[in-house]
Write a protein that binds this DNA or RNA. Structure first.
Lengths: 240, 240
DNA sequence: CGAGAGTTTGAAGCGCATCAATGTCTGTGG
DNA sequence: CCACAGACATTGATGCGCTTCAAACTCTCG
């Protein structure tokens, strides 16, 4: 049996060494000793209820956050009050990478369910990265990947229709759940349809219609927030 | 008189110390000595003609590039041959930040006019960043800003109509030219309308129509690739 | 000067947003 | 445990903004 990553709760101590997420989180590629050092950096591991904010747009930036369990959405808000969802964050993923330059959060992050995170004070993380080459490299890699992913998303928004966008998103979640040792074909989306739609630049009504179309085609089964992918191939063809 | 950055040609030597772009490029916030060290990293300063590629999608990643003079566009290509422009790069800006993780370029970069760049071998840059805390910080800041900018662009694509998109783009260029000591109200766009449109997720015909609308409103004057902003206020209001 | 790329303009159609109404879930207090 | 409120989801009808197609025009540069 393949190694499994327990996505909820097996990292109860303020250390990375015994955290089941260490293979997909920041410590990836660090050796034992360095993982220990990194773990000692963590000062707080706040737990948030559904709807609670990890930070708000405009807040001062002090730390990066690694999701330990649960999930978050990031979003910006316009003057007129509308929201734009910029991303969803699953266990092992880093939040606030966009806040480093201005030393201020350009958007908010809110828990989509009961969620706990590891707080990584950024100045200390920087100091540590200067001492541990592998950590520096990993930080740069994660940020580089975030840039590549965002640019991919730009392409999706610019050139794909509603069906293709949803197919791409479903496959993205599938892959991310799989990496975390969960099923890649059956999972629970913790966010509302309207959040998914907002992220994809589509109205909630359109989301609903596309979900229906996919079900009518027999490609997925969706009951509320539970989703089952019945034909990954069909979705992949749409996404191609 | 304000300091001016000569955007073309005043950095003829393989050093950052005497480069007029050092105040907006990677060396920002480094001291004299460190700037010298950084400059010694530069091995090549290739010059590209219009249409020549700096690198192609799928090429191995070895170095970051800083634009010295001229301009580039980044883009990805689909299986079916269509292009998606992911960015335009002006002097002082870094190219290939999206290639670090996979050690491979996820897109191509092509010169929009005669363009020269400084090649920064990445592994050496990493080593140097570990020695020079300010350099490490600057690298992380630049990448963080790129993430924030891309996410901003995502918002633009998801929620803005054609007029608003063009207004936002024109103001972005205006600001970037201004930072480089050039006029923020009169400048030459080195890329085709179709590239601008592609970047904004709009058809070339739509670009043409929006340009016309802006001119009819008296907000801009456009003759070919020369653009003059007549009412920054009107554009800013659209972009708000 | 000529050719090909880039631009403009008009006409038609389609995809998605919007509006409106109904239906369904979730969690809370009686 | 049930009833209810409020958020969320679904479905249909309509309209608008953009794409697409087509054709003429105009740069640019070899």
């Amino acid at each position: 049996m393949r190694d499994r990553v327990d996505p909820s709760g097996s990292c109860r101590t303020k250390t990375c060494s015994r955290c089941s997420l260490s293979r997909i989180c920041l410590p990836v590629s660090l050796d034992e000793a360095d993982i220990g050092t990194l773990g000692r950096l963590i000062e707080h591991q706040p737990t948030l209820r559904r709807g609670e904010a990890l930070f708000n747009e405009g807040d001062g930036f002090r730390a990066l956050y690694a999701v330990r369990a649960g999930s978050l959405k990031s979003f910006t808000t316009t003057a007129s009050g509308e929201q734009q969802v910029t991303g969803f964050h699953l266990p092992g993923e880093l939040v606030a990478l966009n806040a480093i330059n201005r030393w201020e959060h350009p958007g908010s992050a809110v828990a989509l369910e009961t969620t706990s995170v590891c707080e990584l004070p950024f100045e200390k993380l920087e100091d540590l990265a200067a001492d541990i080459p592998d950590l520096q490299r990993q930080l740069l890699r994660l940020m580089s990947q975030e840039i590549a992913d965002d640019q991919d998303m730009l392409f999706t928004m610019a050139r794909r229709n509603a069906d293709e966008r949803l197919a791409i998103l479903l496959l993205s979640f599938s892959e991310r759940f799989r990496q975390r040792g969960l099923s890649g074909t059956r999972f629970r989306l913790s966010m509302a349809r309207s959040d998914l739609g907002n992220y994809l630049g589509l109205a909630p009504e359109t989301m609903s219609r596309v979900f229906r179309r996919f079900q009518d085609q027999g490609w997925i089964r969706a009951e509320g927030r539970e989703v089952e992918l019945l034909s990954v191939e069909a979705l992949a063809e749409l996404a191609a």
